[in-house]
């Protein structure tokens, strides 16, 4: 499903953020991507998403050679994925419902389908009672649930989560992890970047450990 071969990524031209990294993730797998700050977790997720370029190596996602994509066709890759960010990246001037439906509007679904799928996604994350609220009036856990609903609403094959529990209390973080596990059980491949030992212990999934841009253990 996801294959990364000998990828090197540098920001300043001298110190590699990713240093000849290789890894493989199978379809339907749930993987924790861990390591200290600056290990390259976010960078590798951004590369898988086609948001960052890389110097050498090859990245294949569902058979798509990510390095060959241009800004004109990278959307084809992104539409098969969902991304959840640590800072949620919600639009403050849109309601919960609008934030989730926005992900379908940008890919051109019709309004009827958008309404139906948004409602389903909000039901899955338990946010239907707050569908008309604005993100600023919700807790961190609720905001992250909106982000998860937005990531899952287009039924992506892969969901990338970059420290999705980083800003949340431990109890809420476990709840969020459970939501990802439910999505995994429904067939989505999950790559969950975290440095929380509690989350990894609670999850009991494969762990890819990064340090200074290298895979330490997998």
């Amino acid at each position: 499903m996801i294959q990364v071969f000998n990828v090197v990524k540098m920001y300043d031209g001298s110190n590699p953020v990713l240093d000849n990294i290789s890894l493989e993730i199978s379809k339907g797998e749930f993987v924790f991507l861990t390591g200290p700050s600056g290990a390259g977790k976010t960078t590798i997720l951004k590369i898988l998403f086609g948001w960052e370029s890389f110097e050498t190596g090859q990245v294949l996602v569902q058979g798509i050679n990510v390095g060959k994509l241009t800004h004109r066709n990278v959307y084809t890759l992104r539409r098969s994925m969902g991304f959840v960010f640590q800072d949620y990246k919600l639009l403050p001037n849109k309601t919960v419902f609008e934030n989730v439906s926005f992900a379908q509007e940008v890919i051109g679904h019709d309004q009827k389908k958008i309404r139906f799928k948004t409602w389903e996604a909000l039901k899955n994350v338990g946010l239907t009672p707050k569908k008309d609220a604005y993100p600023a009036y919700l807790s961190g856990g609720e905001q992250q649930r909106i982000a998860i609903a937005r990531a899952m609403v287009n039924s992506p094959a892969i969901i990338l989560a970059d420290e999705p529990t980083g800003n949340l209390d431990p109890d809420i973080a476990i709840e969020i992890l459970k939501l990802f596990e439910e999505l995994n059980q429904k067939g989505s491949t999950i790559i969950f970047a975290t440095h929380s030992q509690e989350i990894m212990k609670a999850g009991n999934h494969r762990v890819i450990n990064l340090n200074r841009g290298k895979v330490v253990s997998s």
């Binding site: 998403f49 991304f83 926005f102 992900a103």
Partner: peptide
């Protein structure tokens, strides 16, 4: 800017 970046992240075409 944030909205546009998000649009691109969630699969909007440059034309959109």
């Amino acid at each position: 800017q944030d909205e546009i970046e998000l649009m691109l992240l969630i699969g909007a075409t440059p034309r959109f």
